[in-house]
Design a protein around this nucleic acid. Structure first.
Lengths: 205, 205
DNA sequence: ACATCCGCGTGACATCTGTCACATCGGTGC
DNA sequence: GCACCGATGTGACAGATGTCACGCGGATGT
């Protein structure tokens, strides 16, 4: 602990943000950015190749979302401690990230000055969870939707008709109507579009 | 141009990103970050108070969007050159930003290393436009929607019924149906939800 | 064993949505 | 002045959507 360097892996799809974070954290004498990736599906390979202590992962990434990447990391390289960073403070994200075994979860509203300290805390074995989001997550509870309801809502996001959704999921149109109806009921919405919005805002999709 | 310092104003709602950008750009010997704000409606006041040469504005901000802030800036402090930076490369954003008189427009996928050079170019009087986005913008053309159609689609985003939209905009339900129908036609969509998605993706809302 | 839940389906019904034709009124362009 | 367009409205109609009741089979829990 005295003067070991923390090896850090950075994953964020926005090159500008990734580079700026790398530069900023690289200024800290006890942090070394050993890998930078822009896609979720590059995280595991980069981690295995560079052996970081901490992985800072964005949730929204092409290829593979950060939460799934975190779960993969836990399996393939369990020693690496994961800090999730996200633009959107959605309760469901936090919940799923915790299930994936992450050590920390903060939103991008966090003051930049504090990030290095958080990385150190994570490295030291602490858990760092955004308190506001934690409260929201407790309040909103887990997703009430079944797997199929989730599938149907996800497919409904693009704005297609029941027939489109049925085709995409290989279901009958009536079944799609039933799942949508129950999803609308569970979300307290009045239309499918509202149900989709609510589910997205809660991070259930 | 020999060794003048470029005074820079930074506006981005995500504190982490804003701080990281400030740190990174502040490392450049010829750039000085003189103001940092997290809301669009704080841009003009900060600019008037700190007299920057270049303003780096995010499009998505609470209070006031970056494009409108840029237009305000043009009016109140026409000497300041504006560089828009955005997460979402939407053709309509670029188009509207150009109308607002910005000097540059880049997406957050831009390599971080290049940002300082872009800021210098902007300060030197050049225009810097993301070429890919420029092509898309030319291809997709201006919004085909009338003002009212835009209003109705915007209101439809939240997933309410025709009655909800009618109430919100003080229109009859039939009129809402007519506008939606024509918006659906113009966007080439088959449902209102699809029309909303297409309009959002093009930056028409 | 029995209840419960989920996945999947059908059929019926009321309501909502999307389209079309048509009408009025106020601008704008030529 | 006249044509055109956008904002607004009405009425009618076909098709989509949302709800409900009900069915079946499989998994899970007590």
């Amino acid at each position: 602990m005295t003067d070991r360097t923390i090896r850090l892996l950075l994953a964020d799809d926005q090159a500008l943000v990734r580079g700026a974070l790398a530069t900023m954290l690289g200024l800290e004498s006890d942090i070394e950015v050993v890998a930078e990736v822009g896609r979720g599906d590059e995280v595991v390979a980069a981690a295995l190749g560079t052996n970081p202590d901490v992985a800072l992962l964005d949730v929204e990434m092409p290829g593979l979302d950060g939460i799934t990447a975190a779960a993969d990391l836990r399996e393939r390289a369990p020693g690496i401690r994961v800090l999730m960073v996200t633009t959107f403070g959605r309760p469901g994200y936090l919940r799923r990230a915790m299930k994936a075994g992450v050590a920390g979860f903060v939103v991008k509203d966090t003051p930049a000055k504090r990030l290095a300290a958080i990385v150190r805390d994570i490295d030291a074995g602490m858990r760092v969870i955004d308190p506001e989001l934690a409260a929201e997550s407790l309040a909103s509870g887990d997703s009430p939707l079944t797997e199929r309801e989730t599938d149907v809502l996800t497919s409904a996001q693009s704005g297609g008709t029941n027939a489109d959704i049925a085709r995409e999921l290989h279901l009958s149109e009536g079944t799609v109507r039933n799942y949508l109806s129950s999803a609308i009921g569970k979300t307290g919405a009045r239309t499918r579009a509202e149900a989709v919005r609510i589910a997205v805002e809660n991070g259930w999709l």
